[in-house]
Amino acid sequence: MTVRVTLIAPSTNEALREVRFDDQSPLDPAGFTRAEAVADTLAPGVHVYSSPSPRCHETAQALGLDAETLTDLAGCDMGRWRGRTLDAVAALEGEAVALWLSDPTAAPHGGESVRELRVRVGAWLDGLWSQAGRILAVVEPDVIRAAVLHALGAPDEAFWRLDVRPLTATELSGRAQRWNALCGRPLGPQTTETPSVPR
């Protein structure tokens, strides 16, 4: 059985524009409008999920999706850095930021490390092998990065080398415990296609 998972990055909000560690802020009006504009272009999903954050939940709503919220798909817990801009944190804790960006096991903010995020998201992804039907999930960009690393068996250090843009789809398809990835397609009619799986 082939498993097909489409991971959708949320639309824009104030935290994204300000390069601020997400503070649970909602979509901005323009972000909601952008998501509504591509709502009719998604192939239907049998199972539909969302990260718990307001921007993911509201993106799912704007896309016309009735998504189940999963804590396993929450964005990385940024501890005391939540709600602060990267520049502000770097000005006060430059060494801690450098460590966080270079060591996937580090969590100087007191929250979750990149490695811990990858393990959590990877466990969710591995649990999908028994599910039939297309799976859609509106999730935070860091969740998408973690899922791609896990699916491809890439090193944790590659986490920061993956760009995830708003309202793009990353498609994972696989069978026999092997995944293929199609990354970063803008939402639109072309996202109804899925990558072929070697037989």
Rank of each mutant, 00 (worst) to 15 (best):
M1V: 04
M1T: 09
M1K: 10
V3E: 08
V3Q: 11
R4A: 14
R4M: 03
V5G: 02
T6W: 04
L7F: 05
L7N: 11
A9V: 05
P10K: 10
P10R: 13
T12E: 11
T12Y: 04
N13T: 03
E14Q: 14
L16C: 06
R17G: 13
E18Y: 08
F21S: 08
F21N: 13
D22E: 07
S25H: 06
A30H: 09
A30G: 05
G31L: 08
F32A: 15
T33E: 15
T33P: 01
T33R: 14
V38D: 07
A39C: 06
A43I: 15
G45H: 04
V48F: 01
V48I: 15
S51N: 09
S51I: 02
P52E: 13
S53P: 01
P54A: 14
R55D: 04
H57C: 10
H57I: 03
A62F: 02
L63I: 11
G64I: 07
D66W: 00
D66S: 10
D66I: 00
A67D: 06
A67E: 04
E68M: 02
T69G: 02
L70D: 05
T71P: 01
T71N: 06
G75L: 00
G79S: 08
G79M: 10
R80D: 04
R80H: 11
R82D: 05
G83Y: 08
R84T: 05
D87F: 02
V89M: 12
A90C: 06
A91Q: 15
A91I: 12
G94N: 11
A96F: 09
V97G: 14
L101V: 12
S102T: 14
S102I: 01
D103I: 02
D103Q: 04
P104M: 04
P104N: 06
T105K: 10
V114E: 10
R115D: 13
R115M: 09
R115N: 11
R115W: 07
E116R: 15
R118I: 12
V119E: 15
A123D: 14
A123K: 12
A123F: 03
L125K: 07
L125W: 00
D126W: 05
Q131F: 07
A132H: 12
R134P: 09
I135N: 01
I135L: 09
L136N: 14
A137K: 10
A137R: 04
V138R: 01
V138D: 01
V138L: 05
V138E: 04
V139D: 03
E140N: 10
P141D: 06
H150N: 00
H150G: 01
G153V: 07
G153I: 10
A154M: 11
P155M: 14
P155C: 13
P155N: 11
D156M: 02
E157Q: 14
A158H: 13
F159A: 08
F159T: 04
F159Y: 13
F159S: 05
W160A: 12
W160G: 14
R161G: 09
R161S: 12
R165E: 13
P166H: 07
T168S: 11
T170P: 05
L172T: 00
R175D: 10
R175S: 10
Q177M: 09
W179E: 01
A181H: 00
A181S: 03
L182M: 07
G184H: 02
G188L: 05
P195C: 11
P195K: 07
V197F: 13
P198T: 13
P198V: 12
P198D: 14
R199G: 09
